[in-house]
Design a protein around this nucleic acid. Structure first.
Lengths: 144, 144
DNA sequence: AGTGAAAAAATTGTGTACAATTCAAATATG
DNA sequence: CATATTTGAATTGTACACAATTTTTTCACT
């Protein structure tokens, strides 16, 4: 049993619990998001727009770590649901500007209870959550 | 600005950095996994088989937090690449048994350098990595 | 002004991820 | 022993996720 054998075990790789944990938590969101007819990706998109109201696809992608290949279809679905409007920037027609609608604003009320419900499903102490938070953002920052 | 407004900010939800960080690290694997013609999902599947040699789909899914809907196509691709063999358990034909092949075993040598390369891309101190590791596995354990 | 490079979305193609359903095999029960 | 239930994979359908390419628009430079 060499050192490399150990390194190749699933349980010794930091990426795997990260990958699995992210999926499991997203799964926890599903019943709550189903109630407001949003997927997780649509939800985090709306979260940015609840705060910023308006943003082009590129900037939105930088916030969400997603590219246009992922965002274009997500935004089209949110437009069909009338939560956002998609239009070209008159000053630079290359930019597609996403703007939240009144219906989109209204959805925020229904969504506002989700974070509390989720934190009840994810048993982390205040301290662990903030430590986790710190390490993850530090890692995100130093990788991109 | 209510309390709920803050809770709905992307930056205040623990799930988002988890989700983004997992994706970014998987992305870091890509160039190294490309060299051995594996996707990340195929790689973690092979990691289990490098250690256990043989396993049915259900148990594999429990290790990887994946269901048959995801695993079936992944395993078919690994079989085409000759890294595994799929066959039914003679004692219980419902069980599909996945067995690593000689080629699959050989692939382990090429893969053995990946963990070291990844840890160079992911700047975490020994202590942070183990703290992160601990919190993630604790969370995984208490959620499922 | 004309042309080539750059930028931003959209498109295309591949590979998950997962809920829901189906199917076949095994087990339990009357 | 026949049927109902359960179990494990596979299938179906929807929704990302992302690399690579294409399209449109703008910018830079001659």
């Amino acid at each position: 049993m060499s050192k490399n054998d150990d390194a190749l075990k699933l349980e010794n790789q930091i990426c795997f619990p990260l990958y699995a944990c992210a999926k499991e938590i997203v799964r926890k969101y599903k019943p709550f998001l189903d109630e407001i007819d949003l997927t997780y990706t649509q939800y985090i998109t709306m979260m940015v727009l609840w705060e910023k109201k308006q943003m082009n696809v590129k900037t939105l992608g930088e916030y969400l770590y997603l590219d246009s290949g992922t965002l274009t279809p997500v935004l089209k679905k949110l437009e069909v649901k009338k939560y956002i409007q998609r239009s070209r920037d008159k000053n630079d027609e290359r930019n597609l500007v996403v703007t939240i609608t009144t219906e989109g604003e209204a959805l925020k009320e229904k969504a506002s209870l989700i974070p509390e419900k989720i934190s009840q499903c994810v048993p982390l102490s205040e301290q662990e959550a903030s430590e986790l938070y710190r390490i993850l953002y530090q890692t995100l920052g130093s990788m991109s």
